[in-house]
Amino acid sequence: MGFDLNSFLAFIIFGVTIGVVYGIVALGISLIYSGLDIVHFAHGEMYMFGAFFGLVLADNVGLPYPVALVGAMIITAIVGMSVERVFYRRLTRAGGGYTVAGMGMIICGFGMSVAMVNVAYFIWGAEAEPFRANLDYIPRLQFPGDIEVPESYVLTAIISVILMIGLHYFLRYTKPGLAVRAVAHNKDIAYLMGINVPLMISLIFGVACALAAAAGVLIGPMQSVQVEMGYLMLMKAFAAAVVGGFGSLPGAIIGGIMVGVFENLGAAYISASHKDIYAFLLLILVLMVKPSGLFGVEAKVKA
């Protein structure tokens, strides 16, 4: 089989599309990490819950897809904020502020992940459910050389870009966004600026979970929705976040795209049955060359 430029380009286009979705989940993980100093291991389950909420809203309730997307984001944000408020905050609280939580927090995240998977089994069962979204109003993209990009991919790309621009605008140009950045950098000083730090932490968590939910609803029409989908997404989003530099928001997106492209090319030209390995291969390669990730600054040192 000779090298075919068109199919190569197609693999890259699909890789980028799936990659921005990894990037969105990674964005949430990075946001939580830089804001709360915790690595959130149950984030894949937020993504899975988001996908199911979207599925229920779109297929069972019958809402239009964009409305279901927004609805799923809001519901998942509320779920995420409740989980943080009820479980995580007890572990991270010390002396009224948020401090490095360490091992307990990691175990709690894993526990939350297992618990959420089982709650999902209880509600939705073990079967993979197809996500039927009516996307006829979205044009298929026709690239030269017979590359056709399906609606769900076009939609994914558009919505991802909107979400990223929205997050950037929020963090850069709004007052709560400024407060979020202040909290991410130093909670004590944020307190002294008169910022309600616990509220901002809830906000950060909510935004991160809403992003994960958006990714879930976007992936839904491409693949099916099932309870175990969170684990693999978490791993790839982690790979994306680490490749980009943990805690860096642009890095998360770039890392996600790299993982998506690398994975698609690997599946196409090396072996399709080992698709899920390539993300980690990329991770290892990047870490060998640049241990802090592509956009990472030196490790965050806490006093």
Binding site: L178, A179, R181, A182, H185, N186, I189, M193, G194
Partner: peptide, 17 residues
């Protein structure tokens, strides 16, 4: 303890939060 990744004006605006 200023916010090094924020501009001078952003720091000041933050003060009036």
């Amino acid at each position: 303890e200023a916010y090094p990744a924020m501009s001078v004006e952003e720091n000041l605006v933050l003060g009036a939060y």
